[in-house]
């Protein structure tokens, strides 16, 4: 009985308290309790992080122990994980060593990985903008007009292009995205209500 019912009650209470704080902020008790619940979630999530770290350590230690393919890279991962966790915990994230690692190891890879997007957006445009039917035609036309309308060279090709491009962004784009957002909001509310009411329980074993 406790195996199912207690978790459902906990979920219901947590959800309704957050809703209560939002709709009745003038109620001091609900307001502070609601703030508590949101902060508590951060604390519980921090504990969950430990589970994630255990998973990462386990997977890679195993890979090294079994000399699986790519075990040498796993050593790199464990070394960087352990070193920077230790420096971060004991010397602080503002210490010069941590900052050096942050500036010259973490940031270049971070920015390098984000800049792969330039390549991806180019090849994805080439691959997927094909005039297969009227719908893909509209998709392609929208992309090409706005792309050219944003740079000066587009105005050289056709003078009205920047104006057309900003109209598309301001009117049909807003309409389409707004419609999707409204539908998405309804879906999110329906699903969240099902969670609060205890109708979604895949993590408790079975949905029924």
């Amino acid at each position: 009985m406790t195996r199912r019912t207690v978790p459902l009650i906990i979920g219901f209470l947590a959800g309704t308290i957050v809703l209560g704080k939002y709709f009745l902020p003038q109620n001091a008790f609900l307001d502070s309790l609601g703030t508590d619940v949101v902060n508590w979630r951060t604390i519980v999530a921090a504990f969950a992080l430990g589970l994630g770290a255990v998973n990462l350590l386990g997977t890679h230690t195993m890979r090294i122990a079994r000399k699986e393919k790519g075990w040498d890279a796993s050593i790199v991962l464990l070394a960087s994980l352990v070193t920077f966790t230790a420096i971060g915990l004991f010397k602080g994230t503002t210490s010069p060593v941590y900052q050096w690692g942050f500036n010259y190891l973490y940031q270049p890879i971070y920015s390098g990985i984000s800049s792969l997007l330039a390549f991806m957006i180019t090849s994805a445009s080439y691959r997927s903008f094909r005039f297969k039917d009227w719908q893909s035609g509209v998709l392609m036309l929208g992309a090409v007009i706005v792309m050219l309308g944003q740079v000066g060279i587009g105005e050289l090709l056709f003078r009205g292009l920047p104006a057309v491009s900003s109209w598309i962004m301001a009117v049909p784009n807003t309409a389409g995205m707004r419609g999707i957002a409204i539908g998405g909001a309804l879906g999110a509310i329906a699903l969240s209500l099902r969670v609060i009411l205890g109708l979604e329980r895949g993590y408790l074993g079975g949905g029924q």
Binding site: V18, I182, A185, I189, L204
Partner: peptide
């Protein structure tokens, strides 16, 4: 272990509703 999972799901569900109902639903309509 299901207690904290239920807590995180419930709180997140509440936060989701408060995040979308005004800004994404009522205000947009």
């Amino acid at each position: 272990a299901r207690f904290p999972l239920a807590f995180m799901m419930g709180a997140a569900a509440g936060v989701t509703i408060t995040g979308v109902i005004d800004a994404q639903l009522v205000a947009q309509v």
